[in-house]
Amino acid sequence: MGRFISAAVLRELAKVDKNVVLEEDSVLTPSAKDLAKELGITICRGREEIVGCKIVGQAVEQRAGHQSGGQQVSVMSGTAAEDDSKSGDLKKVVKTILDQVLKPACANPIPVHVKGETVVVQPFLEAPPGQKVGLVDVIDSRVGNLASGFMTFDHSQLPWFLNYDEVDYVIEGDFVLEVAGQTFRAKAGDVVYIPKGSQVVFSSPNFCKVFYCTYPANWADFCD
Rank of each mutant, 00 (worst) to 15 (best):
G2K: 09
F4P: 03
A8W: 01
V9K: 03
V9N: 01
L10S: 03
L13F: 05
D17L: 08
K18N: 13
L22G: 00
S26D: 15
L28N: 07
P30R: 09
L35W: 07
E38T: 11
E38V: 05
G40H: 09
I41G: 00
T42D: 08
T42W: 04
R47Q: 11
E49L: 10
I50T: 14
V51M: 06
V51D: 08
G52D: 08
C53K: 14
V56A: 10
V60M: 11
E61H: 01
E61S: 05
H66Y: 09
Q71L: 13
Q71G: 05
V73P: 02
S77P: 00
G78S: 07
T79R: 07
A81C: 07
A81E: 15
D83P: 00
D84L: 14
S85W: 13
S87T: 01
L90G: 02
L90Y: 14
L90K: 12
K92I: 07
V93M: 12
K95F: 08
T96Y: 11
L98D: 04
L98K: 04
D99S: 13
K103V: 01
P104Y: 09
A107G: 13
I110W: 08
P111T: 07
K115S: 12
K115G: 03
T118A: 13
T118Y: 06
V120R: 10
V120N: 05
V121D: 01
P123S: 10
E126I: 02
G130Y: 04
K132Y: 06
L135V: 08
V136A: 09
D137P: 06
G144V: 02
G144D: 15
N145C: 12
L146G: 04
S148W: 00
F150P: 06
M151R: 03
F153M: 11
H155V: 06
S156R: 03
Q157I: 03
D174F: 00
F175R: 01
F175Y: 15
L177I: 11
Q182I: 03
R185P: 00
A186S: 09
A188Q: 07
V191P: 01
V191C: 15
I194K: 01
K196E: 08
Q199I: 05
V200I: 15
V201Y: 04
S203C: 07
C208H: 02
K209H: 02
F211R: 08
T214M: 10
T214I: 06
Y215K: 02
D221L: 13
C223P: 02
